[in-house]
Computed example of a mutant assay.
Amino acid sequence: MSFNSRKISAEINRILFVKNLSYNVTSEELYDLFGRFGSIRQIRLGNAQGTKGTAFVVYDELQDAKTACDKLSGFNFQSRYLVVLYHQPDKNMLASAAAAQIPGSNGENADAVGATPKRRMEFS
């Protein structure tokens, strides 16, 4: 195996984004499930209308997050198949910036013409 093939992909990080959770899941249940793969720094469970059924899981160690993502993506938890992804804030910011672009030849963005920019998803 070459040195480059052992290198961890740039998309892998300590923060996992989890979707398709039961609306009734508790933080404690998520700590029990995700804690099997390593020490967890924080879990942010979405509880607003647009964020229910999602959570962010932050691990202390990169390798623990990778293992959890590999093992729990597609895992049946509370009769639902989990979708576990690496949080990619750069891609989210790029997507928001692209959505704010106004078609035309001058390339102005929405802020330049006074339109309201999209708000970032907030967890409470």
Rank of each mutant, 00 (worst) to 15 (best):
R80W: 00
A68W: 04
A68C: 07
R36M: 11
A68I: 02
L72E: 04
S5T: 14
R14M: 15
G104L: 07
L72C: 02
Y81P: 00
K66W: 04
M1G: 14
D90R: 07
R120Q: 09
M1F: 15
L94P: 00
K66F: 12
S73G: 05
V25K: 12
Q78N: 14
R6S: 13
R41E: 14
R36K: 15
K19V: 01
T116L: 04
P117R: 14
A65T: 02
G104Q: 08
P117Q: 06
I8N: 10
I102P: 00
M121K: 12
A10W: 11
I15E: 11
F17M: 14
K52S: 02
F56T: 01
Y31C: 02
S124P: 12
E28K: 14
Q101L: 08
I40K: 05
V84T: 01
F75K: 03
R6F: 11
E108S: 08
M1Q: 11
N24F: 10
L16F: 02
N76M: 12
P117M: 06
G35I: 09
R36D: 10
L21R: 09
D64C: 06
S2Q: 07
G74Q: 04
S27L: 13
T67Q: 13
H87M: 02
A115I: 05
M121E: 07
L33C: 13
I40H: 15
G107D: 08
F56E: 01
G35C: 15
D32R: 12
N13M: 01
I43F: 12
Q88W: 02
K66E: 11
K19L: 03
Q88D: 15
F77N: 06
F56L: 13
A48I: 04
R44W: 01
L85C: 03
D70Y: 05
Y31E: 09
S27K: 13
Q78H: 05
D64L: 01
E61R: 15
V113Q: 09
V57G: 10
M121L: 11
